[in-house]
Nucleic acid binder design. Sequence first.
DNA 1: TTGATTGCAAATGATTTGCAAGGTT
DNA 2: AACCTTGCAAATCATTTGCAATCAA
Lengths: 157, 157
Amino acid sequence: MQPEGYWVTIETMSHSGQEFGWAEQLQAAGHRLTAPRRAVLRVLEGARTHLHPEEVLERARLIYPGLGRATVYRTLALLTDLGLLHPIRLGGSPRLARIAEGHHHLVCLACGHSFSFEECPERELEAELARRFDFEIKGHLLEFYGLCPDCREAEDA
Amino acid sequence: MQPEGYWVTIETMSHSGQEFGWAEQLQAAGHRLTAPRRAVLRVLEGARTHLHPEEVLERARLIYPGLGRATVYRTLALLTDLGLLHPIRLGGSPRLARIAEGHHHLVCLACGHSFSFEECPERELEAELARRFDFEIKGHLLEFYGLCPDCREAEDA
DNA sequence: TTGATTGCAAATGATTTGCAAGGTT
DNA sequence: AACCTTGCAAATCATTTGCAATCAA
């Protein structure tokens, strides 16, 4: 019954036309660039997986040991406001793998493992939607849910 | 800074080939069909939006007043195990609209409003991925993130 | 009957907030 | 100097769990 609960994973936005690093964008928006923030940014920018806030904390503390948990949350909120991050929450997965700038997953509903793929058939759709809704689209997330081979096997047994 | 926090929204799985109602599927899986569960099921099956557990509780209490919060969570977990529900968590949106069986949203990063659309360009991709990863795919979620016309305007001002 | 299920209340876990101290511009 | 940021600890909010009573099969 998925006793593990759920996790917040951080979803970096794709094709946002990022000309500057996050640090610069943070400053451009009038925020100060402090050592704690730098540490968090470095972790996030370098992440090859979705990270929980707690993981961000752990890793960022390797860079800036005194870092407080609240600062991580505050920085995540800040980046979310700037449209650089988007929090999502998925149940059942101990961890979600992700390829650098892609946001395309295949998530197993049973074991929670996820697989990434690169195909992105939404480009045309994106343009069409941008036009129809007059939206400025910054990124997307495409996830398929199902059963992986191992779990299907286990289920049959 | 999005003081509202985040919400759990319930994502019904699409094209799952549902031949029976959830009540039947629950029983088929060996679970008992109780009044509290019936109430929750009725709310979920009738929902035209993503619902937070708290909303499910509120609505289900209209049907079965004595309903306890824990039972809602337990039932949601049960349905998740059966692959009928999938919990997701999105930040920044007060509510997420959704069209009956579609799971295609356009979410404004600023105001959190969401718009639904029907196009679904992933059918072929789904088949291709199912083959490549040997996955049994049950549903999917496609979300675009961006800025709606109103918020873009407000931002420019 | 008999084990599954329930509501309640307490326990847990995650996230947010108040505040005095410290850091950035 | 002025005000933004920080870390800490306390507060809050969401979710889970223990348990005795109740209910579906």
